[in-house]
Design a protein around this nucleic acid. Sequence first.
DNA 1: CTCGCATACTACGACTGTAGTAGTACGCGT
DNA 2: ACGCGTACTACTACAGTCGTAGTATGCGAG
Lengths: 114, 114
Amino acid sequence: MISADAIRGYVDLMVLSLLREGPSYAYELAQRITAIGGDDYSIKQTTLYSAVKRLEAGGLVSASAGVSPTGKPRTYYRITEAGVAHVALKTEEWHHTKTVVDRFVTGTAQGGTP
Amino acid sequence: MISADAIRGYVDLMVLSLLREGPSYAYELAQRITAIGGDDYSIKQTTLYSAVKRLEAGGLVSASAGVSPTGKPRTYYRITEAGVAHVALKTEEWHHTKTVVDRFVTGTAQGGTP
DNA sequence: CTCGCATACTACGACTGTAGTAGTACGCGT
DNA sequence: ACGCGTACTACTACAGTCGTAGTATGCGAG
């Protein structure tokens, strides 16, 4: 199980990645993230909702009011151009992070432990 | 450049990984982490110092007073058995995290965009 | 001699992101 | 009538990082 602290900072990237495939709404995003996370990770509702709010405030996604098939109101989120750019940026940062952290865990830090 | 938020949660792992190679002290650890991070990452002194304090409080490292070559006091940290176990745990978690986040960034999230 | 710099560490306050808890509201099946 | 899944909101607590600043010492440059 991945702790929240471990994946902290990548919630935004996950949300934006999903929205890149098409508009969605918070509740569904949470379910999809948890589904993709499988046994390893499940996101909390509050975390996801505050994430989309944050992204909306930052102009990375845009919200539009819609309705669910049952007629109830539902807020749809769509990724903006700034959001797409942000995904690219964060993806690159993610690769850097992988490289750096791997340097530590693989012990390539110095010469190895004989 | 990797933002602090991106690597947040892996400072402990980085510190413990370095200490697995032998005892060290806070100031040197900070320098080595920044050196290994290269152009991608540099740790702040406060972050590192609070990290070692946290690890000591958690029993993952043990502190012992020593002296620097100049005769000034210096606190050396050594990884404990619990610390070694923690590294193993966190390393596994790291691999899981990589897998999960990669699922999002590679877009393997669903079936592809036709 | 004095100044700045590197070393080595400590303290405090501010901010952000996640979790916990709880509440609203509605349609559906039993 | 009741609970359950859907869809969302609000408030609080807590942990980790950062910015800033301060202490103290030894060394080389001016």
